[in-house]
Design a binder for these strands. Structure first.
Lengths: 131, 131
DNA sequence: TTGCACACGTTATAGCATAACGCAATTGAT
DNA sequence: ATCAATTGCGTTATGCTATAACGTGTGCAA
């Protein structure tokens, strides 16, 4: 597998996210794409579902919003846990990965005999500029 | 400071969460408390805001739901980062804390000169029984 | 007693997400 | 070629989550 060719709607949503400074809600994306013919939330959500599946986009649970993945070359191999810092001031989101955390979480969860499917790590606060 | 005496509404919401098996949405709580006189979402949300502030309740961002804190004796000293496993099968939520993860995250974030205010760690998957 | 802080009640509205229907295009096996 | 299955798409309607804005009452301190 890998990432299939994107459909028109998927490309439009991906483009909107990629050119955005920060995260966008589905409805914000919808508004940005009205001129391209988007009329209903489902058009956005369906595209987002696929983009999430392909690993091109991340969902920020604490924001109910979406960002383009900033590790564009890691989509083939599942690159495990993704973590984010989210600045409450400027809205900037920084994606990062760390093996140590991944392994530690993995060990703790194994201790519960829990089978992980998706891990969410989001750190809200203020970035250097907005401190 | 510490935890002040709860008001009537706060106690009712706290009780509903404490006696629940798993997490509940604000609207589910509302429905459970209609017999006690609750009529509107704000009554629940206002109580939840305080209970969150007091550390008696946690919000699960990936579920838009709330759980009673299971570390009832740690509310005085802020006990740092709280993490959860959430079973997609039975809905069971397990709260846990780990200093190693906390320190590792803290170091990574300090590297960005980022000031943390709130950290969310939620692991979705299946528990031992639901594997 | 006046002013302030806080909890509360109510109505209305905003913001996020999906159900259910039907149509069109593609693919792939027979 | 043709049929069936799959996938994407468009639309309408609906449901779930959260907050804005207004007013009331109560307790307490200056």
């Amino acid at each position: 597998m890998g990432t299939p060719q994107l459909t028109k709607n998927q490309s439009l949503v991906m483009g909107a996210l990629a050119h955005s400074e920060g995260p966008m809600s589905a409805y914000t994306i919808l508004d940005k794409l009205r001129d391209q013919g988007f009329r209903a939330p489902l058009q956005v959500y369906r595209a987002l579902d696929k983009l999430l599946e392909y690993g091109l986009v991340h969902r920020l649970e604490s924001l109910n919003a979406f960002v383009a993945c900033t590790c564009p070359h890691e989509h083939e191999h599942d690159h495990g846990v993704t973590a984010f810092t989210i600045c409450e001031g400027c809205g900037q989101v920084t994606e990062f990965h760390d093996e140590a955390i991944e392994e530690r979480l993995s060990a703790l969860v194994r201790g519960q005999s829990f089978k992980t499917e998706k891990t969410t790590i989001e750190i809200r606060g203020h970035c250097k500029s907005c401190a």
